[in-house]
Each structure stands twice: as structure tokens, then as C-alpha cells.
Amino acid sequence: MVPRDGGIFAFFAFLALAAVLFWCYRKVKGGYKPYFRQIPALKGLEEAIGRAAEMGRPVHFTPGSDGFDSGTAGMTLAATICLAHIAKLCAQYDVRLLVSNRRPAVQPLTEEIVRQAFLAEGKLENFRPTDIRFFSDDQFAYASGVVGVISGEQTASNIMLGGFYAESLMFAEAGATYGNIQIAGTASTAQIPFFVTTCDYVLIGEELFAAAAVLSVDPAQVSTLMMQDIIRIALVCLIAIGALAATFGSDVIRQLILK
């Protein structure tokens, strides 16, 4: 067994993470209610879908440009978790939901999520498999497809969650041009400014990952949010100690992380 560079630290950090998660789970299960601030974008989801219901027009959703085989797969996963909630709301309000995919591997998953959500609400007859669309693996072919859906189907709301690249602004501008309520969420730092300038609500960075847990009342979900806060405080302390150590000429924290 040969540890990889930084592997020992990563392994113990992972164990610590799991231990903190377990501790948080026990605490939440025991009745502890942690305080979480409201995320406006999540309130905006109901507003966006409600508006589409009032206007009798569809909602558009895209889980972004990433699949499940890259380092940014977490964003796609978080987007699909939120899709389950969005599809449920659409089924409740009898709103048509259009989903646009770039990665073929995401296509069957999104189709099944939407189908199950409509089935759970007893509205399977409203589910159309052809509303869950795969366009192309090519970035701008996919972008053209999404812009075509927003303009051609006259959508009332445009929800973009996941990993995005240069196409993000094309989607957001198309949605703004056609007067859509727009909700975006990504941890791609280069695309956040585009979304902030063009969308009504934005889930910035970790808010995308926290969204699923906030939407849930399940203790296991709530405990992961609590774990994220504890880990964040620990990381800030580690960064502060590292900065102090570096100021006094010591690279002890750097060496520890590289082990």
C-alpha cells in the first residue's frame, strides 16, 4: 500500500468528516434544532412555478453542462436532487416541465426523476417523455437547443442549476429577453457573476448543495448542513493558523496537508 500525495491527510480529514456527520446526526435526532438562514432562491422556486401555473406556460430546467464523470459531478448531483423537488411542485400545480440535457448520462436520470415525481403526485398522465430532451454533447449545440426551447415554447420560468461554462450567459439572457423568472445555482466561480447580473434569484456556491437539505425535514439531511458549518469553521481556523505560521516562517500546516 503506497499513500498518494496528500492521501494520509485526506484520509484522516474524511474520517473526521464522517465522525462529525455522525455526531450531528445523533444531536439532530435527539431533538436539537439548528438555526439555518433562509435561502431566498428556494422561496423563489415556488414563485417561479406558481407564476408559470398562472400564465399557463411551461417551466424550463437544465442541470448544466457537467455529467457524473468529472470533478464537478457534485453540482450535477445537487441539481438532480433539486429537480426532484421542482418536478413535484410542477406536478402539484399542473405545470409542464421542460428539461434540457447536455450529457447523455444525465438524460435517463432526469427523465426518471420527473416521471417518479409526477407518479408520486398521481399525475402521470401529465408526464411527457419528450419534454425531457437531450440536445448534444457539443457546448454550443446544447446552448442553441436551450435558447430554442426558451423562445419556442414561451416558457414562464427558467431554472438553471448545476455546472455551467460560457453558455450560462446565453441561457440567462435568453430567459431575460422572454421575461422569464430566472433562478440559477452554480459553484462555477466564473459563471456566478453572469447569473447574478441576469437572474432574479441565485444559489451561490454551497447554497446549491445546501438547497436539498434545506428543502427537507429529514434529520439526516439537516445534520449534513450542520456538519458543513462545523467543517467550515474548522477550515477557517486551519487557514488562520497556516497564515500565522507562514508569517513566522513555518510551513508546518503546508507539510501536514501534503502528507
Binding site: L17, G74, A78, A187, Q228
Partner: peptide
Amino acid sequence: GGAIGAIATAL
């Protein structure tokens, strides 16, 4: 924040 969120989601 995004990295912590991604790790938590994966976990």
C-alpha cells in the same frame, strides 16, 4: 464553501 458542499453531497 462549494468544495465542502460537494463533499457533503457525495457523502
